[in-house]
Deep mutational scan, measured.
Amino acid sequence: DIIVVALYDYEAIHHEDLSFQKGDQMVVLEESGEWWKARSLATRKEGYIPSNYVARVD
């Protein structure tokens, strides 16, 4: 699995987006352009995240 960590807070604009806080970790389900589908490890919610707001966890 690809795990990413949020570098900034993000508040969902569209209903299919996933809100998150800086430091939250998410599993990337699908990488497509600038918006990736991800699942929050904390809340288990799924949605689209801006890929430039996150960094991969090695």
Rank of each mutant, 00 (worst) to 15 (best):
M26F: 14
Q21R: 13
L29S: 08
D9R: 06
V28I: 12
K45F: 13
G33Q: 13
W35G: 06
V27N: 02
I49M: 01
A38W: 00
D58F: 02
D1E: 07
Q25S: 05
K45P: 01
D17I: 11
A42I: 12
K45G: 12
D9M: 07
S51A: 14
G47L: 00
E11D: 06
T43Y: 06
R39G: 02
K22G: 04
T43W: 02
W35R: 15
Y48N: 15
E46M: 09
R44T: 14
E11R: 13
G33N: 05
R56L: 08
R44N: 08
A55M: 12
V57S: 08
F20E: 00
K45S: 11
S19Y: 04
A12Y: 08
I2F: 07
G33C: 03
I49C: 04
Y53F: 15
M26V: 01
L7M: 12
S32H: 15
D9Y: 02
D58A: 04
M26D: 01
Y48P: 01
V27Q: 12
V57K: 14
Y53N: 03
L41C: 12
N52P: 08
V28R: 01
F20K: 00
E16P: 11
E31W: 06
H15Q: 12
K37Y: 04
L41Y: 09
F20P: 00
S19G: 12
S51Q: 14
R39N: 03
E16Y: 14
D9F: 02
V4D: 00
F20I: 04
Q21K: 14
I3G: 03
A55I: 08
D9I: 00
Q25C: 03
D24Y: 03
G47D: 01
V28F: 04
S40M: 14
G33D: 13
P50S: 06
K22I: 09
Y8C: 07
W35L: 12
Y10C: 07
E30A: 15
V57R: 11
Y48L: 15
Q25L: 06
I3C: 04
A42V: 15
W35N: 15
V57F: 09
S19L: 01
Y53R: 08
V5W: 03
T43M: 04
Y8H: 12
V54N: 01
T43A: 06
D17M: 08
S32G: 13
K45R: 10
I2C: 05
Y48M: 15
K22N: 08
E46H: 12
V57H: 09
A6V: 00
E46A: 11
L29I: 09
I2V: 02
R39Y: 03
Y48Q: 12
S40I: 11
A12M: 08
H15W: 12
Y48G: 03
I2A: 03
L41M: 13
Y53D: 01
M26R: 00
A6K: 01
T43S: 14
L41F: 11
H14K: 11
W36R: 06
D24I: 02
V5C: 11
K37N: 02
A12E: 04
E16A: 07
R44Y: 09
E16T: 10
A55W: 07
R39W: 07
E46I: 05
I2H: 03
V57P: 07
H14I: 08
N52Q: 09
G33I: 04
S32D: 13
Y48S: 13
A12I: 02
N52F: 04
Y8L: 08
A42D: 15
E31S: 11
S19T: 14
A55R: 12
K37W: 11
R44E: 12
S51T: 09
V27T: 07
E11F: 09
A12K: 15
A12V: 03
L7R: 09
H15M: 11
K37Q: 15
R56C: 14
L7T: 13
Y8V: 09
A38R: 01
G33R: 08
I2N: 14
D9C: 03
A6C: 06
Y53S: 11
E16V: 10
A12S: 14
L41D: 04
Y53V: 04
T43F: 03
E16D: 15
A6L: 00
T43K: 04
S19C: 10
D58M: 00
K22D: 01
P50T: 02
A6W: 00
L41N: 04
L41H: 07
L29G: 05
D9N: 09
V54K: 01
D24E: 03
L41E: 11
L29Q: 13
R39A: 07
I49E: 00
